Amino acid sequence: MTATTTKVQIKQSPQLDTKIKLRDIINTLPKEVFVKNSKKAWSKLIINVLLVGLGYWALAVSPWFVLPFLWIFVGTGLTGFFVIGHDCGHRSFSNRNWVNDLVGHLLFLPLIYPYHAWRILHNHHHKHTNKLKVDNAWDPFTSEDYAQFSPLVQWFYRRLRGWFWWVGSIAHWASLHFNWWQFEGKQRQQVRFSVLVVLLGGGIFLPTLLITTGFWGLVKFWLLPWLVYHFWMSTFTIVHHTMPEIPFQSESEWHEASAQLCGTVHCKYPWWVEFLCHDINVHIPHHLSSGIPWYNLRQAHQSLKENWRDYLYESEFSWSLMKKVAEQCHLYDEQNNYRTFKTYHHSN
């Protein structure tokens, strides 16, 4: 299935045989895609840091009419920070866990994102991808869920599942990643440490920025790049698993191999976005095995196209694609995958 900038084609993927296991699909991938390459990992990290640093320097010296382009550039570069930290969370950046955790914390710090909280919750998403009411990343409400909420919550939910999808990751970040008491044992200690790191870092950096550059400096150097970062986080996350043709399944019917192969979207973005965000959009092989480093995702995806082409959902980032998601993927309906808010309110 493909989508162009002018028209999104809709075609339901063939059903994967339930006898096929996730391991059967993984075994068709070349062995070399699982191999970590320290040179590639560290060189791309250094390039990412230098580009973001260049962007901040340009923000400091450029005239006002250049600033919107620089906010987009810096915010997208900060999304690259997150993607490398994302690999750290999956232990696919380094063979040493302490290196993964150190780099992950440092890269997440400018985003005010508690690393261990995200790592633990995100691994839950990988384990339960598209499992209705269990997956914790953009799991859609059913009509029954929606009916139980107050009018105010319903209003916010309609915004987040509609044209304000791009702030969804802010709500996800704020509501799930700072309450360490929801975790147990060692995980609670790890999450509390990560929360304290970002609170301390943010507590020092943001007031210092405000004092030295004023309110406009806080907006210019932090808030607007941070909002661009969340635009990409929200967009990547919702597009990766939310299409009218892609079902969520109840726990009793959920099939792991189908969810990871057929329930994940490969979306093509402009080349500069894919470069700065380290090919996170090449997402299907990442869900088959989170141990594949980002620099091997394209090779793994090519292998999937050779062996499993009929089961892949591929699209292209465009206005028509986001219009499709924002206008159709509202409340989950197991028979039709989704129903819109409009049809729900008309029937009630």
Rank of each mutant, 00 (worst) to 15 (best):
A3P: 08
T6Q: 14
V8A: 07
K11N: 08
K11W: 00
Q12W: 08
Q15N: 13
K19V: 07
K21Y: 09
N27L: 12
T28S: 13
T28K: 14
L29C: 03
K31H: 07
E32W: 07
S38G: 15
K40Y: 14
K44V: 15
K44T: 15
K44Y: 15
N48L: 11
N48A: 12
V49T: 11
L54E: 13
W57G: 12
F65P: 13
V66D: 11
F69Q: 06
L70A: 10
L70S: 09
W71Q: 03
G75S: 02
T76L: 06
F81L: 06
F81Q: 04
D87S: 14
C88D: 00
C88R: 03
H90P: 06
R91K: 14
R91S: 12
N95R: 15
N97P: 08
N97E: 14
W98M: 12
V99A: 06
V99L: 08
N100R: 09
V103E: 00
V103P: 02
F108Q: 09
P110M: 02
L111N: 03
I112K: 02
R119A: 12
N123L: 13
H124C: 07
K127F: 12
H128M: 10
N130T: 09
K131R: 15
K131Y: 12
V134E: 02
D135C: 07
D135H: 10
N136E: 05
A137K: 15
S143C: 07
Q148M: 07
F149K: 13
Q154G: 03
Q154S: 01
R158H: 02
R161Q: 02
G162Q: 02
W166G: 01
H172Q: 07
H172T: 04
H177T: 01
F178D: 00
G185F: 08
K186H: 09
Q187F: 09
R188A: 11
Q190E: 10
R192A: 14
R192W: 13
V197W: 02
G201N: 04
G202P: 01
F205M: 07
I211G: 05
G214L: 12
G214I: 13
P225V: 04
W226M: 10
W226K: 05
L227H: 01
Y229D: 02
F231T: 00
W232V: 01
M233L: 08
S234K: 03
S234A: 05
I238A: 01
H240Y: 06
T242G: 04
P244D: 06
E245C: 06
I246M: 11
P247Y: 15
F248D: 04
Q249W: 14
H255M: 10
A257Q: 02
T264Y: 11
V265I: 12
H266P: 07
C267F: 03
C267T: 15
P270H: 11
W272M: 14
L276N: 03
L276G: 05
C277P: 05
I284K: 11
I284G: 07
H286A: 06
H286S: 03
H286P: 06
S290Q: 05
S290H: 05
S290W: 04
G291C: 09
Y295L: 03
W308T: 01
W308K: 08
D310R: 15
E314V: 07
F317E: 04
F317V: 04
S318H: 04
L321P: 01
K324R: 14
V325E: 00
E327W: 07
Q335Y: 06
N336D: 04
T340K: 09
K342L: 10
K342I: 10
H346P: 00
